Computed example of a mutant assay.
Amino acid sequence: MTALLTEDRDGVRTLTLNRPDAFNSLTVELKEALLAALVAAAADDAVRAVVLTGAGKAFCAGQDLKEHMALLAANDPAPLSTVEAHYNPIVTAITALPKPIIAAVNGMAAGAGASFAYACDLRIAADSAKFLMAFANVGLTADSGASWTLPRLIGYGRAMEMMLLAKPVSAEEALRVGMVTQVVPAAEVLPVAHALAARMAAGPTTAYAKIKEAMLASAGGSLADGLAVEGRTQAEAGRTADHREAVDAFVAKREPGFTGR
């Protein structure tokens, strides 16, 4: 079975974690495939938006602990280096992707799986989905960027509560506190996420990339840093064909036709 499925439609590349019998838990094979797929999507001009989802009933249960334990028992160094080798590059690839990426959270998202969803730009969740920061339950600390992304979504206090108590958060609660963008019935998660991604795939791709760049820089920087990045990225976006098209369309009172350039 292929650990990661890829589908292209309407300018949207859908990446599906495909280990449903193991709740899409993350093996070395799946982590390497996901990282390679994100890098490829970033470089492909035909891909103007990305959806990340899971096969079956779960989005992603996080690290595959069976593989993890087997490697530890064999004194393999891989488990101790997977954050640096896999999780950090994956989260960097998600946040730096120069096009929108939407998490279609079709079920449980735990550990690194939840962290991947937090790193995405938008999150569409099934009404049956749950989010769980389970690191403390296995004697570990946060990884995959969750200590940075989660407090920025829901605040320091709530994020600390999730980390320390490892208490699942329902989709309804996740929506209330701002963890997710929208909650829909489980059967509608992927269609809704794809429709949103397709709408954005028809939009000004370079502008989206510059918005992401400015937001990411400002999230961890000073006002002066944020203003500097805004100034540079605004000038870069202003030189695009999409900006000229949008202004022409506004003056002519017609809908713009964006090409992503």
Rank of each mutant, 00 (worst) to 15 (best):
E7F: 09
E7R: 15
D8W: 11
G11T: 14
R13S: 07
F23D: 07
N24M: 09
L30E: 00
E32H: 11
A36N: 05
A37V: 08
L38T: 00
L38G: 00
A40Y: 08
A42V: 00
A43F: 05
D44T: 04
R48M: 02
V51C: 03
V51H: 01
T53G: 01
T53S: 01
G54K: 01
A55N: 02
A55P: 07
G56R: 03
G56T: 03
F59G: 02
F59D: 00
A61D: 04
H68I: 00
L71A: 13
N75M: 13
P79Q: 03
Y87P: 05
A93E: 00
I94Y: 02
I101Q: 01
I101N: 05
I102W: 04
I102K: 01
A104T: 02
V105P: 09
V105E: 04
A109D: 01
A110S: 13
G111I: 07
A112G: 15
G113F: 07
Y118S: 03
R123F: 07
I124S: 06
K130A: 06
A134K: 04
A134P: 04
A136G: 04
V138Q: 01
T141N: 00
T141R: 00
T141F: 02
D143Y: 15
S144L: 06
G145H: 02
G145A: 05
A146P: 07
S147Q: 14
S147I: 08
W148N: 14
T149S: 15
T149A: 15
P151Y: 07
R152C: 14
L153R: 09
L153V: 10
I154G: 10
G157E: 14
G157Q: 12
R158P: 07
E161T: 15
M162L: 13
M162C: 11
L164G: 06
L165Q: 10
A166F: 10
P168Q: 11
E173W: 09
L175W: 11
V177T: 12
G178N: 10
V180D: 04
T181W: 08
Q182Y: 06
E188L: 10
L190R: 06
P191E: 04
P191G: 03
V192D: 08
V192W: 09
V192A: 14
H194K: 11
H194R: 09
A197L: 12
R199P: 05
M200E: 07
G203D: 15
G203M: 08
T205D: 09
A207V: 11
Y208D: 03
A209K: 04
I211D: 02
I211S: 02
L216P: 04
A217S: 06
A219K: 14
G220N: 08
G220I: 09
G220F: 09
G220A: 10
G220R: 12
A224Q: 01
G226K: 02
V229Q: 08
T233F: 08
T233Y: 05
A235H: 13
A235N: 10
A235E: 13
E236M: 07
A237R: 11
G238P: 11
G238C: 06
A246I: 13
V251G: 00
A252L: 05
R254V: 10
P256D: 01
G257F: 12
